[in-house]
Design a protein around this nucleic acid. Structure first.
Length: 891
RNA sequence: GGGCAGGUGGCGAAACGGUAUACGCGCGAGACUCAAAAUCUCGUGGGAGCAAUCCCUUGGGGGUUCGAUUCCCCCCUUGCCCACCA
């Protein structure tokens, strides 16, 4: 018996594919064939190499891509490298290799690993985010955002990771810790570039509806955006000209306000605190300053301090004490809360602790229940009491009436905050910005007044496309909106892009808040592109998410477009190609009984990746895409039409794979021991794509045995001496084999279409098992035909072995063959097996002609000995008959 | 505290109103072998029985139905995400 020499076979076919320049996987940018953009989340080429988790998603999309290609689709299935960012940089520092060098090495390793698994990527579109040809366009896009006023300089307190020595966005945190290194995050006021993602909050929220994503990821994004609708109004402050704005979703409880709370960072704290309270407030603030956000949130008991000042209730005119407490967050709404202890659990706890009055104004039955033992927060039931003219109104009715009475404005707030877009690290895209003192003075002395924008305010609209002239002329110099809004900051002209990351010897983070780039004076000092005066470059770099915001567009546009000079943006944004891949023509829908439904909003047709990107990459990329649509360079609203989240592959102990647990499975080892085809199939056989499932080191031999049997059988069959070949098939067995073959063609096709790879593989196994039983009874030529079909079905899963099997009988290439069709007529059986139940319990089965009449079936069913004995003494109340399935005698 | 997804043999899982445990692992027995590995054959949810056969079984409890792993309600439990958002 010939052994399944997977190593030889896999090498042979990988060479063959490489020799042809991977031309079979190359996507065309036009044509009338149905098309699909099948995208994997591209990896960070870390020093660890590819892990089996990556390969789960990559194998799934590879199977799908190969399958659709055989069905005549034009498939765009590319791969690239998310090469900028902290993990890559930290690896470089640890191993004392320049990030650029380390990255090149890691990319080469990743690519080799990917090719050793036989993934069918269109390598002609390969890209890396750290390539100047690529990041030139990342900079170009940032520059557009800047000029349109979407990027602003901020000095607000921001998340600082003391170990990574950089600022981080909220999205980069996990429970108040750095997502990468798990250090506790500090809040530090720092100069930062921030992107105004909040301006897109509503669109990011609303357009979720049209996405074919898992409900859980959509829900995560909804919660992250965190829209709430309520009212805002201002309290007057006793003995002061200041007013105190608050936001509330419960204006109906206005009569129950017994105190007001400010966040410790609130700007009014300083001015309203009375001299008597100054010392206490100072102490409280000092204590608070040492707390991290995590401490703040973890505190069971709320703390606060009285400011000494009083607000005036807008309706009752009562004096209400103003407190300062860190359970109120400055980042949200106005950083101030009207305290209604009777109807808010947090306010209740606070009032309870500091003996503030609790005033019941919502009651389930219209009666008073004071003193309350807990806050009553049910808004569905309940009516107003102790609320003057609004008594007896429902919660729902009351709010608008009170608002009208006191002229409170309806308002919408979001949890989403603007995106901290700068890192004080080396390995990232440099900002295409310079700072010029003279231009700063020009702007500040000019008459331009841009409405002062805070991160929470959504009062500002994007200027009409291409009208960067929302800025204007100062003297004889033109300033853009972004340049007017950020005095002194000047955009690098497009023709000067890319601003190349200088090659330095010291790239370790400084920890001073300045990036390593700041020390390279020759790089930092430049001429102002606006006025020619002395200027300095921005030395922070962009976060790792920048490059991944548009890489799918990079794949669509291709390497030639990336190489264009940035001043040729018009040519770069090739509308024909973008429309081809991002919008759907009529031809894409339906087809062949497959469910590759295209999505009306356009975007990447099929995107596979882990759920960990739900509130990071997937929200950032949507934001960029919408901006790019607004400036007229992409043709549709959303980047990713359909998203599937592959589950995590856990270690064999059921825990997350990690070095420290020692449960990491290295794909290289598996390939060496069992081969790539076994690895691919086993990853798919583990369970449903979207479920997390443990890797069972023992289980892999099952798939390997299957492939070995497939090979041995096919090989033995192909090398049969002519004398030993069976001349004539047994008619009955041939018929059975054919029916099974057609069944399997249908099943495997349907399963691939629905991402049910595990059951597709089961079906292939069953097919193979039966064929082995039939082998003595099927003629050589008939078996050849059946084996050809089997090979085609196997091909998407195990392309190397399938290529080898195909070449045993055919001169052509398997990947050029059309996907086999099944004949529904063959699937029709002329007998069917009925399940015979008595009162719902299975007692027997009955095989009978499909055409048998209901009465005939029931008659025969009743006659079965196993059934009749259950019916003997009973009276049949009812007979349930389901054609072709079941007869149930109810007694 | 809120949201989402799960709980089926010894294990990964299948079926998703109609014969629960397909497929695979593991295990047991046998064949081949001096022997072992590999391979092949048969068996394998639990219980009672010599057997035919019968009873029980999809986290627990109710409900709808002739029939529920599947649909509805309550509870328990595991995982993931978000969490003082006014």
């Amino acid at each position: 018996m010939k052994k399944y020499d997977f190593a030889r076979i896999e090498k042979k076919w990988q060479r063959a594919w490489e020799k042809s320049g991977f031309s079979s996987w190359r996507a065309k940018n036009s044509g009338t064939a149905k098309k699909m953009f099948i995208l994997d989340m591209f990896p960070y080429p870390s020093g660890e190499g590819l892990h089996v988790g990556h390969l789960e998603g990559y194998t799934a999309t590879d199977i799908y891509a190969r399958f659709l290609r055989m069905n005549g689709w034009n498939i765009l299935h590319p791969m690239g490298w998310d090469a900028f960012g902290l993990p890559a940089e930290n690896y470089a520092i640890q191993n004392k290799i320049h990030p650029n060098v380390a990255m090149k090495k890691n990319i080469a390793r990743f690519k080799k690993q990917i090719q050793s698994v036989g993934l069918s990527y269109d390598w002609s579109r390969e890209l890396a985010t750290s390539d100047p040809a690529y990041y030139k366009w990342t900079q170009w896009m940032f520059l557009q955002m800047f000029h349109h006023g979407l990027a602003y300089e901020s000095n607000e307190p921001i998340n600082w990771c003391p170990l990574c020595k950089t600022t981080l966005a909220n999205e980069d945190l996990e429970n108040g810790r750095c997502e990468r290194c798990k250090s506790l995050i500090e809040r530090k006021p720092m100069r930062q570039w921030v992107l105004r993602i909040t301006m897109y909050a509503d669109r990011l929220l609303n357009d979720l509806k049209q996405l074919e994503w898992s409900e859980s990821v959509k829900e995560m994004q909804r919660n992250w955006i965190g829209k709430s609708t309520g009212y805002e109004f201002s309290f007057r402050i006793k003995n002061s000209r200041e007013t105190l704005p608050v936001f509330t979703t419960r204006l109906d409880t206005l009569y129950g306000v017994t105190f007001v709370v400010l966040a410790p960072e609130h700007p009014l704290v300083e001015s309203i605190t009375t001299p008597e309270q100054k010392e206490k407030v100072r102490l409280y603030m000092r204590e608070g300053a040492s707390k991290t956000d995590l401490d703040r949130a973890a505190e069971k008991e709320k703390t606060g301090v009285f400011s000494g000042a009083y607000a005036i209730h807008p309706i009752t005119k009562q004096e209400i004490p103003i407190w300062i407490a860190d359970y109120v967050l400055m980042d949200y709404a106005f950083g101030s809360v009207m305290g209604v202890p009777a109807h808010d659990e947090r306010d209740f706890a606070f009032a309870h602790k500091y003996h503030l009055p609790i005033r019941e104004v919502i009651s389930p039955d219209g009666k008073s229940h004071e003193p309350l033992s807990s806050a009553y927060t049910d808004i569905a039931t309940g009516m107003l009491i102790h609320s003057g003219p609004f008594d007896r109104l429902s919660v729902k009715q009351a709010a608008p009436k009170i608002a009208a009475f006191m002229s409170a404005q309806q308002a919408v707030k979001y949890k989403l905050q603007d995106w901290t877009f700068a890192r004080q690290r080396y390995w990232g895209e440099p900002f295409p910005l310079v700072f010029c003192e003279q231009c700063k003075k020009r702007v500040e002395n000019s008459k331009f007044r841009v409405p002062l924008l805070h991160s929470g305010l959504n009062c500002w609209k994007l200027p009409a496309r291409r009208s960067l002239g929302a800025g204007g002329k100062i003297g004889n110099l033109n300033f853009t909106l972004g340049e007017v809004m950020n005095p002194g900051w000047i955009g690098v002209p497009e023709e000067k892009l890319p601003v190349v990351l200088p090659n330095v010897t010291h790239y370790e983070p400084t920890g001073t808040g300045a990036s390593p780039l700041a020390s390279i004076d020759t790089w930092v000092s430049v001429k102002c592109p606006k006025c020619g005066g002395p200027a300095k470059r921005e030395t922070d770099t962009m976060p790792q998410w920048a490059g991944s915001c548009w890489y799918y567009l990079g794949f669509i546009l291709g390497q030639d477009k990336l190489k264009l000079s940035a001043k040729r943006a018009k040519l770069f944004w090739d509308q024909k190609v973008l429309k081809y891949w991002l919008t759907t023509g009529r031809r894409d829908s339906g087809g062949g009984g497959l469910v590759h439904r295209s999505f009306s909003g356009g975007g990447v047709g099929f995107y596979v990746g882990g759920t960990e990107h739900a509130t990071r990459h997937l929200i950032y990329a949507r934001f960029w895409h919408k901006f790019l649509q607004d400036i007229g360079v992409v043709p549709n609203k959303e980047p990713f039409a359909k998203l599937v989240n592959q589950g995590m592959v856990l270690g064999s102990d059921g825990e997350k794979m990690s070095k420290s647990r020692g449960n990491v499975v290295n794909p290289d080892d598996i390939i060496k021991q069992y081969g790539a085809d076994t690895l691919r199939m086993y990853e798919m056989f583990l369970g449903p794509l979207e479920a997390s499932k443990p890797w069972d080191t023992n289980g892999i031999v099952g798939v390997h045995r299957f492939l070995s049997r497939v090979f041995s059988f096919a090989f033995e069959h192909a090398s049969l001496a002519p004398k030993k070949r069976i001349a004539k098939s047994n008619a009955e067995i041939k018929k059975r084999a054919h029916r099974l073959m057609h069944q399997t063609v249908k099943k495997v096709g349907d399963d691939i279409s629905h991402m049910r790879f595990n059951t597709a593989i089961s079906a292939l196994m069953e097919f193979q098992n039966e064929l082995l039983e039939y082998r003595e009874h099927i003629a050589y030529t008939d078996m050849n035909k059946i084996l050809n079909i089997f090979t085609l079905l196997l091909y998407p899963f195990a392309p190397h072995l399938a290529s080898e099997l195909w070449s045993m009988r055919n001169a052509s290439r398997v990947e050029k063959q059309p996907w086999p069709k099944y004949n529904p007529a063959v699937l029709v059986r002329n007998t069917v097996t009925y399940v015979i139940q008595v009162s719902g319990k299975v007692r027997d089965t009955l095989t009978i002609s499909v055409d048998a009449e209901q009465s005939e079936v029931i008659k025969q069913a009743q006659a079965c000995s196993k059934v009749s004995k259950w019916l003997e003494t009973k009276k049949i109340k009812r007979v349930v008959f389901v054609k072709g399935k079941i007869v149930n005698f109810v007694v």
